[in-house]
Design a protein around this nucleic acid. Structure first.
Lengths: 208, 208, 208, 208
DNA sequence: AATGAATGAGCATTCATTCAT
DNA sequence: CATGAATGAATGCTCATTCAT
């Protein structure tokens, strides 16, 4: 299973970037899987290096520290997820668009269960810890959801007692728990059913 | 702030000298805070012992291993939360009872933010890891929610496309994310508003 | 050869100090030898532990870091040397007392050649590095020499163009180089001859 | 401040492209400073390369190993110092010539404090270590001093109890300590005073 | 002549765990 | 009950060195 190397792209216009890019991709792949399965603390750099087929030194040549590697992996995962959620075609009813977002998110979570677990367990740590702004990553996704909900609020009559901001947070929670639960119990749950379950909240919010 | 040592229940032959009980309480307190703040992997037994004001040996006199300590802490937290959620008076409309549960859960999460964070990041780990049945703990809470929802389904017309089982999972997700978010952003969000936000899902489910 | 564990003494009145004291002594012994022979950078903690017959962890149980160990070794060596130089009986002519000091210093250097080399190579490092005040250690010895010279100046007519302060520094240099040289070329050089050579400077200073 | 690259002499076939020469000079400069400040063990090739503004590979293109670089730096420093001390005009009283040597040495040490510190801390290491013959370097300087002293002995009545050989060693020690001390305490000490202090030993030796 | 990516051995340090007292 | 000294396996990280380009 390939890791969400997403937005890394052709970053440096240097002389021998191909080699580096390949190395990094291999590391991302290996890292995401291991980190997600056992959690950062229970995976050693040695293991990641071995899984990626490079030497330990190479990890440190490409990432400044273990924390940096974890952060970069998390970041690239969120990049990729965001990209997917952003690419939803305009036009349909805002509620359908939110449903689409939820569906795509669930797909993504099913595709990268390791990322999901990793993201889940790091997400709410006091921001300081993995120096990257985990909260910034979180906020990027939350903004996306919020925007979707705001679009809904613009064309529908919604419960004014429910702050969009907060609804976005709970929606994110529902989606992630649904995704993790699906992963845990096998593909028992249809994608559409899962979406329906999560969307229940949106339907309860809209009062038309 | 004291840790949720509460419901450890009459697990051990009660006539354990008082000293032990006090020692354990101190350890639970210290452990819960540190573990929640930084995650089990980033807290050493030394630190916990120091924070509890006992020697390292004492930790091992009272718990068989670090994993055991973490498991016991998690377990006692879930015990306490469960107890609180169970003690909801009968009689009112099932929807109100679910709302009450959500409210109490949010209160609990606010009271023990460290436990919340710890629980959150361990919750979805492949069950093997901390040998305790993390999933068993999860299921105990999920059952509670499920029962609440089933009671709702018994007296209300609910969306048949939404499996109660799954709705319970997403409700748990919403609640925990709401709780964590509240903790992160200060007490900005009123308890009742938070409850309303989470309950949106239930309202969307009920079709009366 | 035993290390200059000197002033460590019965430091802590704790419960089981004997074991600790013995462990530390073994470590000092092993450390001084290895550090002096190859320099701190070329001796690993593993080696020191092995030479002392303890485990690596024990080193860290007793010293907070490698730098700390080096610093403590240096300190205890200087302690011991100072002690020896201080114990010179009063009464004789100040010049003889200085000669006595030089002689004892040379003896000490011959006794602990490893310490000598270590001390020599660390002595003039920019004070910051081994956080201990290396310069403080240096100054302790310099003060001793300076006092000896001042006593000389009090009863003899000395060259006023030569600051005592500076003469002390050069005397220290002569002595250490003489000591190292003696160590390098075997015991070829008699103690008394070596003293005479170093004392040449004092004799040139006194103009009676 | 430029490093004492000076006397590297006509070692390599002179028609080495200018580029190499410049590269080496930059490396010498960077190396001398860093090595002196922190000691060889605490300076990495990366740092030296960076400070010299070249890539790491370039260091290895120009020097066979780190030890080689250190050795070459040391060697070229001693070369330069020796050159300066040799160029003292004949004619005057041998004692004055020795004083002149001491003065020039002190000047040199003040000019290249980094070299001084490096030289000082490596000087007395068991010869094996930096495979260069450190002792050979030392001996070159000692010979110079010895010759100066022998000239003195030829025209003056000197203390026969003091072997010239040994006096040379202590003179070297005095001079280096004086130099280092001057560097440490700022230029507080006049050159001439410093010379006078060191020369005290010679004056004590001459009995006219 | 120079570079930078990759390497892997080496090392300081941490930490759960044991055990004699 | 409790402690603190000791352990040793595990691990993050550094760095001299190599080599294809």
């Amino acid at each position: 299973m390939s890791a969400p190397t997403g937005a890394s792209g052709p970053r440096e216009p240097v002389r021998r970037p191909a080699r580096t890019a390949r190395t990094r991709a291999k590391l991302f792949d290996a890292a995401i899987t291991l980190l997600g399965e056992r959690g950062p603390a229970h995976v050693s750099i040695d293991e990641i290096a071995a899984a990626a087929g490079v030497s330990k030194g190479t990890v440190y040549y490409n990432f400044s520290s273990k924390a940096d590697l974890v952060a970069k992996v998390l970041e690239s995962g969120v990049d990729l997820m965001e990209e997917r959620l952003r690419s939803i075609p305009d036009g349909s009813d805002p509620v359908d668009r939110v449903a689409d977002m939820v569906g795509r998110a669930l797909e993504f979570l099913a595709e990268y269960p390791s990322f999901t677990r990793l993201w889940m367990s790091e997400m709410w740590r006091p921001a300081s810890q993995w120096q990257t702004e985990l909260s910034a990553l979180r906020d990027r996704l939350l903004s996306l959801i919020r925007e979707g909900l705001q679009a809904v609020a613009r064309v529908h009559d919604v419960d004014p007692a429910v702050p969009v901001e907060q609804l976005a947070v709970t929606l994110m929670g529902s989606t992630m728990f649904a995704g993790l639960s699906r992963d845990n119990h096998g593909p028992a749950l249809e994608r559409d059913t899962a979406v329906a379950v999560v969307m229940t909240a949106v339907r309860g919010w809209v009062r038309d």
